[in-house]
Design a protein around this nucleic acid. Structure first.
Length: 478
RNA sequence: GUCCCCUUCGUCUAGGGGUUAGGACACCGGGUUUUCAUCUCGGCAACAGGGGUUCAAAUCCCCUAGGGGACGCCA
């Protein structure tokens, strides 16, 4: 029995975004689910646009979302090379084979000529198709044109009455007519192969069993099947997943805040948050729990892949980020923070005891989404930097100078215990509930919401509390 | 223009002839916290429209509308 194999085959022409990342993730999840391999192949046949730096960025970003491959350019494998730019000889061999059985022929039509034909066809209400101009060229005609210095493309011949059927993993049975396809280019005039060709050949040669790709590739499938069948090569099963749309229903783009994985990482998103979110965008999991990559893989199922397009929803992504933050253990929490050191934050590791660090982490995790939020709290507790908003200052003023005078006096006797301080203030002012606690919270932390008082007691000593209460009193006097 | 795909709460979706149409996010409200956040409990909210088929349609069929994709010497 053949081992299952999925693949991701990007062209290194830019940073990977949410859409592609989700396709890669699905492929990786499926491979793990089937206990097979996930393969990475770099489709760098477009020499002008492909850049090596993007290949590196791509591999780094894929690893970041746990989608590590078992076969690929950096680690090799039996069926390499995994850069298409190194596989030219292979493609050339198959071109010859196709020409030998008259399923491929050189075409000398100029791009301008073709563009014109398409225009005319459309104007006449017809579908734009290659009309087959060069299909019947004789060997001598071809020879003559080549001698004239003309560089032909190579076209694959699709007979008009061909019917191509296949079962799509996601969309079900598909039927295409040869007439709707037309003869398509498999080698460009510059000798480089086209995507249609290399992609099909490589998937087959590399023994890929399941191809998960975007719906935009659906109509490529009959073409690729035609090539593979003509060459008597094995074909993978194709599954076309619906695209991700922006909040207005149009394709996801930068306009909708679609960011590269790299940008997302730089903003402080946790990979497991993105993984949990993306895994559910167009794939149904009965359980709504935060899951690890392994759990997601275990429960991944092809029938649970959605046929209809999904909209990108930042609110839902934020929810998974919140879950991810809550799940962070201390070690990772501090690594996460140190990776996003902000300019005016002090170094955290020098004086803080593990106990204090632990208390701090547990206390603020429910209150933060990103490292900047965490650093803000860090500043509050360890750097004496409070940023009180004007609204919150109003709350302070409403409490009044006397309120803080009493609080200071209470702190001097009871120490750093907010509830005890509150008790004293309550006894003397009659204030209670929100009126009592909100001014204290704002005075001590600079914010209207934040950690539990128990944690704040452990993070601030008596002197700090008194100083902050004094500052608050000054604000009321201002 | 031609061909193809899709359409259930605001969003992600479950359900595929008989369901009080289920869950999650968001939102709103209760509880906990003598405060807020967290946590917890609850509520609001949907079968695109029109025709069939059927005892019975969200579910099957047809049409319409809307959205998306493909039609490249891009991938």
């Amino acid at each position: 029995m053949n081992i299952a194999k999925t693949r991701f085959a990007p062209s290194p022409t830019g940073l990977i975004h949410m859409g592609n990342a989700r396709t890669a993730l699905f492929s990786a999840l499926l491979a793990h689910h089937l206990e097979g391999d996930f393969l990475l192949r770099i489709e760098d046949t477009d020499r002008e646009r492909s850049k090596e730096e993007y290949t590196h960025a791509l591999m780094r970003d894929l690893c970041w979302i746990d989608s590590k491959w078992q076969e690929g350019p950096d680690i090799g494998g039996e069926l390499g090379p995994y850069w298409q730019s190194e596989r030219q000889a292979i493609y050339d061999r198959y071109y010859k084979q196709l020409e030998a059985i008259s399923l491929a022929y050189p075409c000398f039509c100029s791009e301008a000529q073709l563009a014109l034909t398409r225009k005319v066809q459309r104007a006449a209400g017809q579908a734009p198709r290659y009309p087959g101009t060069c299909r019947g060229l004789s060997a001598t005609e071809i020879q003559t044109k080549i001698e004239q210095g003309l560089q032909p493309v190579l076209r694959f011949h699709v007979s008009n009455d061909a019917i191509i059927e296949f079962e799509d993993l996601v969309k079900g049975k598909q039927v295409f007519k040869g007439h709707d396809i037309g003869d398509f280019i498999i080698r460009r005039a510059n000798g480089f192969p086209s995507f249609m060709f290399t992609n099909a050949i490589d998937d087959s040669m590399m023994k890929v069993t399941h191809v998960l790709r975007g719906e935009d590739h659906l109509t490529n499938s009959p073409r690729q099947l035609l090539i593979l069948r003509a060459l008597e090569m094995t074909t993978p099963q194709y599954g076309h997943i619906s695209l991700i749309l922006g909040d207005d229903g149009s394709p996801l783009s930068k306009r909708h805040g679609s960011k590269s994985l790299q940008a997302l990482r730089e903003d402080g998103w946790l990979p497991e948050a993105l993984v949990n979110y993306m895994a559910r965008l167009g794939h149904y999991y009965p359980e709504n729990d935060f899951m690890s990559f392994e759990e997601l893989a275990q429960k991944f199922a092809i029938p649970s892949l959605s046929k209809s397009p999904a909209r990108f929803d930042p609110a839902q992504m934020r929810y998974w980020q919140k879950e991810a933050v809550l799940k962070l253990d201390n070690d990772r929490f501090w690594h996460w923070l140190s990776d996003y050191q902000i300019a005016d934050a002090p170094r955290y590791d020098s004086q803080l005891s593990p106990e204090i660090k632990n208390i701090f982490a547990q206390a603020i995790k429910p209150n933060i989404l990103f490292p900047v939020d965490a650093w803000q709290w860090f500043n509050v507790f360890f750097n004496n930097k409070l940023n009180i908003s004007s609204d919150d200052k109003q709350t302070l003023k409403a409490a009044g100078s006397e309120f803080f005078g009493l609080a200071i006096a209470a702190a001097q006797t009871v120490g750093n215990d907010i509830k005890e301080i509150a008790k004293h203030v309550k006894a003397l002012t009659g204030k209670k509930g929100k009126e009592l606690f909100m001014p204290l919270r704002i005075a001590l932390t600079g914010q209207a919401h934040g950690p539990d008082f128990g944690a704040i007691n452990q993070l601030l000593d008596k002197e700090q509390m008194i100083t902050r209460l004094q500052s608050a009193q000054e604000i009321t006097n201002a």
